[in-house]
């Protein structure tokens, strides 16, 4: 039996959802693989939603909104782009970035809706089933995706992604436009840091560990793990537990 991917679509109420409706009214035929969740605006689509869907074994996630400039809420879809880009960058870390897609479909583009969905289904078919689907997905990968979900939902990432447009396109609190390139650098750095930190937190859930064992588990340089442990201690999420021989062991704090 050929692979039939399970896909999820987040569609904005005013354009894409209407477009999907139009496809129906127009009896445009497309593959039945995508289930749709209606949201009021693409700007509402939290990175956490996308990552959680993947975590649960969905083979692909489609985010759709109004064309740029057409947003019912004026600029919601601009925000959607920023969040989507961040999510993609996170997912790149585990090679799942090609399982999500962003597109603009207007209320009048019923035909196009059918086309893009068909293309997405085909593309995912080519990719094959998500490594997280099936009965016994790779536990390590699940933890990694979980770390991404938590990191993407952290205060720091939300603050950064939420202010990106204002700061890089208009002006920041000092009335200056912050260079986009520099901002991207900060974002990329933060994405890696928060991902690694949440991986540490997850790794410490079952048992307490040393810097070195975390380093080999996560394949990250121990000196960087140590830095993360210090930051997490400062955030009251990790605590020192005991010293075994010459190695301090750290535990998760509830």
């Amino acid at each position: 039996m050929s692979f039939e991917p399970k896909l999820l679509g987040f569609l904005c109420n005013w354009c894409s959802y209407a477009g999907a409706d139009l496809a129906g009214v127009s009896r445009i035929q497309y593959p039945p693989n995508m289930r749709v969740i209606r949201v009021m605006c693409s700007g509402r689509i939290d990175p956490k939603f996308i990552v959680q869907a993947l975590e649960l074994g969905i083979d692909g996630v489609y985010v759709m909104g109004c064309h740029i400039g057409d947003c019912h809420y004026l600029e919601g879809n601009y925000e959607a782009v920023k969040k989507y880009e961040m999510t993609r960058e996170f997912l790149k870390l585990v090679g799942l970035d090609n399982r999500i897609r962003l597109d603009w479909v207007s209320a009048s583009e019923g035909v196009r809706f059918g086309e893009v969905v068909s293309k997405f289904v085909n593309d995912i078919k080519e990719l094959g089933p998500s490594p997280l689907s099936g009965d016994s997905p790779d536990k390590d990968l699940i933890n990694k995706v979980r770390a991404i979900r938590l990191a993407a939902g952290s205060n720091r990432m939300r603050a950064l992604v939420g202010r990106e447009r204002k700061i890089t396109e208009e002006d920041n609190v000092y009335g200056e436009k912050y260079p986009l390139e520099k901002y991207k650098e900060i974002m990329s750095q933060a994405i890696i840091e928060e991902y690694e930190r949440h991986r540490i937190l997850i790794a410490l859930e079952d048992e307490s560990k040393s810097v070195k064992s975390l380093a080999s588990e996560l394949s990250v340089d121990p000196s960087i793990i140590l830095e993360h442990i210090l930051t997490l201690k400062g955030r009251a999420q990790v605590d020192f537990q005991e010293i075994i021989k010459n190695t301090p062991i750290y535990m998760r704090r509830e």
Binding site: S223, L226, F240, I243, P248
Partner: peptide, 17 residues
């Protein structure tokens, strides 16, 4: 300080002898 007074190696967080 950052290590809460435990003497650790910056490379791997172990206690140097």
């Amino acid at each position: 300080g950052p290590y809460s007074g435990r003497v650790l190696r910056p490379s791997d967080g172990d206690i140097p002898e």
